[in-house]
Amino acid sequence: MKTMTVEIRVRFKDGILDPQAEAITTSLKRLDFKGVESIRVEKLFVAKVNAETESQAIGMGREMANKLLANVVMENFEVTVAAS
């Protein structure tokens, strides 16, 4: 059993409007960041888990995301094991 760091990244699905991201983009433009085309806001969950293998740790991360961390009606998620 190893302790691993699992990162679960949650973001809105394509096509789901994100008023917060739009407001941030507008504000950045007001600050003269003219080159900014868009901003995406994501949530990052960093979990320390005990697992035998990396794929088991990823499986745990996916289950956590499906059951709680993401609302899969409107959000996608990505699970990775961070290099230790």
Partner: peptide
């Protein structure tokens, strides 16, 4: 909505 007894999702108000 979170418990999926009703469909859809609730987003932040359009005026934030």
């Amino acid at each position: 909505i979170e418990s999926r007894m009703l469909p859809g999702y609730l987003q932040v108000n359009s005026g934030l």
